[in-house]
Design a binder for these strands. Sequence first.
DNA 1: ACCTGAACACCGTTCAAGT
DNA 2: ACCTGAACACCGTTCAAGT
Lengths: 198, 198
Amino acid sequence: MTTDKGDAAAARPSPHGRPGLNRRNIAAAALALIDAGGLGSFSMRKLGTGLGVDPMAVYRHFRDQDELFDGVAQALFEEVDIEALDWDGTWRTVLEQFCRELRDALLRHPHAVPVFATRRTPSWASVDCGVRVARMLQADGFAPARSVHMVLCLREFTTGHALSQAVSRPVGGHLDPHEGHHFEVGLMAMLDGFEGLR
Amino acid sequence: MTTDKGDAAAARPSPHGRPGLNRRNIAAAALALIDAGGLGSFSMRKLGTGLGVDPMAVYRHFRDQDELFDGVAQALFEEVDIEALDWDGTWRTVLEQFCRELRDALLRHPHAVPVFATRRTPSWASVDCGVRVARMLQADGFAPARSVHMVLCLREFTTGHALSQAVSRPVGGHLDPHEGHHFEVGLMAMLDGFEGLR
DNA sequence: ACCTGAACACCGTTCAAGT
DNA sequence: ACCTGAACACCGTTCAAGT
């Protein structure tokens, strides 16, 4: 991952009184802009002007749009509170809670779900989280490779579900009060199936 | 769905000797262009010039890029041979075969998977297919709503998996000879879980 | 050294002008 | 009536020129 050693200093207000730009607040602003106007109307130039700086200023913190979108995915994943999971509960409870947390975070940002879902690595925090969950599964008796596969499958189902919901939801409205209810059906089925793999 | 009544006539060679443009062959050409150069380098203008016609000619068949991408998703889904499924086998066999067919078709076009996965309706053929599978599940004793949920869950897992594989695969190479092997783990687990829902 | 914004090489889409 | 391509309003990104 690209480090950003300048952020600690840049987070202080600049000499002009504006809050300094850094990767974190630029990515957060990009996510907000995508939330507000949809992915199609997002642009690097609008992001810069929206932040009140030179439209090209973002390029001093991110190589290009692709790298910025990595930051957007990271910002989104930070809403998943890993520490809030009941790590002392059963493996099944942890997986359930994690998938629901991830789904909820994604659906709070429907326009950004395609960005998240098409990142090569949605964020290093999500990788770390996956490793942690896989280790827990191993401690509970699942084979190492199997543990990794289970985590990948759940992440793919959850992301696939959120993406499907996000793109089928008309802007500003809900299709159906029960839309997305089937997520629980799939989650329960997959976890039931995993029970037999220990 | 938008009809395309002009296609039957347009499929014949034009007075200039070139094969006439229609929705079907334009969408196929777009898919081929995405396959060859990646989604990032695709453009409406390149598509037109690649077809040997005016760069704007595509707009007489598709309202805009979004509608063309619906056609691309449709072209991709047509590679899934629904009739080749063993419809006389068990519901489980049909679901297994369908998911594997869809996954294989998607991974033959990794650059187009984000297009497919972000369509509101990937194609009417896929909707019809889903309805047909759901009807089979009902005939096998699953509740109607449950049947629909099962189909949606499998489609979301399969699409999510293919998308994850497609974006993590470096252009022109494979990450690992065993990559994607976990698809079977998730598919078997979900189907095992579904067994208990009848 | 840092910052700016003009400039380049493109886009998607429209529409007036042709045939 | 059909077709064309010039024109419009943008893009992402680079980089020479400024401070």
